[in-house]
């Protein structure tokens, strides 16, 4: 009975966090904020749901499997988010207009696809490097 209540509570919390990830995906103003909301809320929601499944079945083999999925998700979600964020920034996706700071601006050399500590001359930057100017949405690029 007690474990049943615990399972339902964890399931409800996990589903709620996944719902929040969906809301963040819809409502956040730019790609990077969307990514921060979904990577964290989505992983936490999936982790809670999986934990509820482990408690519900209460079997050693299943618990091992579930813990493996949780560890895998927690390892890969930040890696995937980082790679997409990096690629999107260099692809020229604009930041939100309320953004205060952009530390990467002017440090990407377009000819070698590399980040450098020194400031890059204007002519070797990307033509539409992510910044505060707005790029048109791409439909067919």
């Amino acid at each position: 009975m007690l474990s049943e209540i615990l399972v339902m509570a964890l399931m409800l919390a996990g589903a709620f966090f996944m719902f929040l990830a969906g809301i963040g995906m819809m409502r956040m103003p730019d790609l990077f904020l969307r990514m921060s909301s979904t990577a964290k809320a989505g992983t936490l929601g999936a982790g809670l749901l999986l934990l509820a499944a482990a408690i519900h079945f209460g079997d050693f083999a299943i618990t091992t499997r579930v813990l493996a999925i949780i560890v895998f998700l927690m390892l890969t979600a930040p890696v995937a988010a980082h790679m997409i964020g990096r690629a999107a920034y260099f692809d020229g996706v604009p930041l939100w207009k309320g953004t205060v700071r952009d530390d990467l601006r002017g440090h990407y050399r377009a000819s070698t696809h590399a980040l450098e500590t020194d400031s890059i001359p204007e002519e070797d930057r990307l033509p539409d490097e992510a910044g505060f100017e707005v790029r048109k949405p791409d439909l067919d690029r």
């Binding site: 996944m18 979904t38 929601g45």
Partner: peptide, 19 residues
């Protein structure tokens, strides 16, 4: 509106399907 937006949406969809 950008391609990376769609990619992270797909990522979230697959995590939700897992849930």
């Amino acid at each position: 509106p950008y391609l990376p937006d769609r990619v992270i949406a797909l990522d979230l969809i697959s995590i939700l399907a897992m849930g």
